[in-house]
Amino acid sequence: MGTTTKIRRRPEAFNIVNGAILLLIAVACIYPFIYIASVSVSDGPYVASSQVYLLPKGLNFETYRYIFTNPRLGIVQGVLNSVFYTVVGTFVAVILTYCTAYVLSRKKFRGRHFIMMAFLASWIFEAGIIPNYIINDRLGLVNSRWVMILPGAISTFLLIVTRAYLESIPDELEESASIDGANDFQIMWKIYLPLAVPVLATTGIFYAVTIWNSFLIPLIYLQDKSLQPIQLVLYNLLINQDPHSTSLENLTLHGHQILPQNIQAATMILAIVPILFFYPFAQRYFTKGITIGALKG
């Protein structure tokens, strides 16, 4: 009798402790975001005296109002730029990757192995940032919006993932459509595209997150302030703080004090929130993409 209770009780204690520790780690993952969000909607003096550590104190949205009514800060422009790059860039990249992967997955297409190897070779041996810069400079991509869209439009990794998915669709589909008189373009667009939606979603999310979060490319190529994405605006506002840019000052609006800390926190939130819309899908499709990528390659 005694042993049974022992066996029964020990796992329960383990479950509680284990669950508690894991939840604590989960909290450590989201706490910084909650803190930053709270700072962005708290009144300046509370922030300055470090009284905000979890929930907002002196709740107000004047910081956001200030950001949205003062275009000279460049924050709104940054968000709009990022949205533009992400939407257009993801669209272009998904289509281009799908079309390329489709052709490279057709067995009747000669030379598909050779072209695939050419992609792989450029993947495992990268030229590096300077030769890339030399070429992109020649192409007129310095201080051009296209630099956020074109060079990254085919990721070899996602090309492999898409091709592996398309290869898993039986060939009979193509054959029967071809007998019915459909040409290659119609088969690709009307028959395979609807079937490829899950893999398009996976690649789309990967591309969207990569473009939204990209930092090095705009840092190198986009000196023009009006073209910079929000990540770079945030960097200039908080980390870089170059003396030429308009520095933030303390100010009071509608009875609420707005400190540079408030504005910085609000900018971080604006650099996170738009991409969070993808988060619910991301979990599902990332898992798929990761497993395909890790296992099949």
Binding site: L96, T97, C99, T100, Y102, V103, L104, F109, I115, A118, F119, S122, F125, A127, G128, I130, P131, N132, I134, I135, L139, L150, P151, A153, I154, D184, F185, M188
Partner: peptide, 20 residues
């Protein structure tokens, strides 16, 4: 259909290697 992808490969993946 492959042409745009091929151009991308040549311009953005292989030309930088030449740039080395």
């Amino acid at each position: 259909i492959l042409l745009p992808g091929l151009l991308h490969l040549v311009i953005f993946k292989w030309a930088p290697l030449g740039g080395l």
